[in-house]
Simulated scan of single mutants.
Amino acid sequence: MPYLTVDIEKAAVILKLLGDKTRLTMMKLMDNHACCVCEFVEIFQISQPAISQHLRKFKDLGLIEEDKKGQWIFYSINKTNEYYSFVKSILEQLPDQADKLIELEKEGNRISCC
């Protein structure tokens, strides 16, 4: 599969975003699961506005997409984004984070917002 050559400036912006542990974990989760803000609030134990700021940074680059279901918005990686292969190559090197979602489900918090 041919890889897209990423402009140095754009790569630096993406790597800076992924340099934050919370954002990196969020992206790893969203690569395989659609997640709601309330789930990220529970997982990271930080405020909804802080989670929204992290998501906005990804949205500004088109790296994530939204799927509105009722009053809730679920976020996932935009796999059609021109930089997805670059991001994916990084995410593939990381351990799976699904255990965080499984724990939420056990606590009854995974489905509370759906």
Rank of each mutant, 00 (worst) to 15 (best):
M1E: 04
M1L: 07
P2L: 15
P2M: 15
L4I: 08
L4S: 14
T5L: 14
I8W: 12
E9H: 13
K10F: 02
A11P: 14
A11N: 14
A12M: 10
V13H: 10
L15D: 00
K16H: 07
K16C: 11
G19I: 09
K21T: 05
T22M: 02
R23V: 09
R23N: 00
R23F: 00
L24R: 13
T25D: 01
T25G: 07
M26A: 03
M26E: 02
M27E: 06
M27G: 01
M27N: 07
M27W: 03
K28E: 01
L29K: 09
M30Y: 12
D31A: 09
N32C: 13
H33R: 05
A34G: 12
A34P: 05
C35D: 09
C35R: 04
C36W: 12
C36Y: 09
C36S: 07
C38A: 13
C38E: 07
C38V: 10
E39L: 08
E39I: 07
F40W: 00
F40S: 02
V41Q: 08
V41D: 07
E42Y: 08
E42N: 05
I43P: 09
I43Q: 03
F44D: 02
F44E: 07
F44H: 12
Q45F: 13
Q45C: 07
Q48I: 05
P49L: 05
P49M: 09
A50N: 15
A50H: 15
A50M: 15
A50D: 15
S52I: 13
S52L: 10
Q53N: 13
Q53V: 08
Q53Y: 13
Q53F: 08
H54K: 06
H54D: 01
L55M: 04
L55W: 09
K57N: 06
F58I: 01
D60F: 12
D60E: 15
D60H: 14
G62D: 12
I64M: 03
E65M: 06
E65F: 09
E66I: 00
E66Q: 11
E66H: 02
K68G: 03
K68P: 01
K69H: 00
G70S: 00
W72M: 08
W72K: 10
I73V: 08
I73F: 04
I73D: 10
F74P: 11
F74W: 04
F74Y: 12
Y75D: 04
S76D: 04
K79I: 02
T80E: 15
N81A: 00
N81C: 10
E82T: 15
E82P: 13
Y84D: 00
Y84H: 04
F86S: 04
V87S: 00
K88P: 11
K88E: 10
S89M: 05
S89L: 11
I90C: 13
I90N: 01
I90D: 03
I90P: 12
L91G: 07
L91D: 08
L91H: 06
E92V: 05
Q93W: 05
Q93R: 01
Q93D: 00
Q93K: 03
L94I: 00
P95Y: 01
D96G: 08
Q97N: 08
A98M: 15
A98V: 15
D99I: 02
K100I: 13
K100P: 13
L101C: 01
I102C: 11
I102Y: 13
E103V: 09
E103W: 09
E103L: 14
E103D: 15
E105P: 04
G108T: 01
R110T: 04
R110V: 12
C113M: 02
C113K: 03
C114P: 00
